[in-house]
Design a protein around this nucleic acid. Sequence first.
DNA 1: ACAATAAAAGTATTTAAATACTTTTATTGT
DNA 2: ACAATAAAAGTATTTAAATACTTTTATTGT
Lengths: 143, 143
Amino acid sequence: MLSITCKTAIKATIYLASKLESEQKASIKEIAEYIDASEHTVGKMLQTLVKENIIKSAKGPSGGFFITASQTQLSVLKIVLAIDGEDRFNECGLGLSKCSSTHPCPIHNDYKIIRDGFKKICVENKIADLSVPFNKGVAFLMG
Amino acid sequence: MLSITCKTAIKATIYLASKLESEQKASIKEIAEYIDASEHTVGKMLQTLVKENIIKSAKGPSGGFFITASQTQLSVLKIVLAIDGEDRFNECGLGLSKCSSTHPCPIHNDYKIIRDGFKKICVENKIADLSVPFNKGVAFLMG
DNA sequence: ACAATAAAAGTATTTAAATACTTTTATTGT
DNA sequence: ACAATAAAAGTATTTAAATACTTTTATTGT
């Protein structure tokens, strides 16, 4: 449903949100280790999130990536749109190209419910909703 | 949700099912043209479907691919499993690796509903259900 | 028997996503 | 000022999926 990079982005963002209270910044290395992903992939992807104003970054010593309280109120959808784009929610489940509401394929309505349901999850869950303070454990983030 | 090849497989199978009544076989070329896909891709993929007994083939002049009445009673799931494999229905929506029913991530249950819903569509829809006799038009199959 | 046809099968290339590497820029603390 | 740090940015490689090409095998009709 989502690309690997997009899932990595969600994990990284949740990790940053879990550190919100501690006010600590996290380096690429730290994030990559925590979510068990490649440093290079994580670095590139974090740049995109910064550009889209989903997280913030600071260069130099004691720099790193972090998220603000207001940014944790953004929906998960924002991350998905930033990394995977909007098309993710507009495909026919069976790939029937001419499928649309005016010319529906046999499972059009069944699938629309599923697709819209997934989008709803992304819209209704804020980044903060998926995070728990660091001390409560974010074990489910680790591979 | 499904790979391009898997969607192509579904389209091709529906096309064959739409020709069931006419008892005509279809060549790779004909199928590829109809569903607007590459002949090579379609050829390879049809081989897989034949091996998995989802469709049948005949070599030689007046040969080609076809589907039997009993095969049209197979579920769409069979095609998905043959091409994409079972893993397609076992991933956490957000890629949270340690996510499971005993250790659920925050959206585990919401997403499970979605994922299971999609699988249900694949299980409950027979190939025959997605097909209409050729003369009724299969316009939605074309790109 | 033989030519024609069409799938089967094997191999090669292309493409896009993911991953890896290198250089540059900005910031900090001394 | 300068050394150290860490992200930003640019480029290169790897990987897997998709697509392309070639040869072989089976079947049919003459």
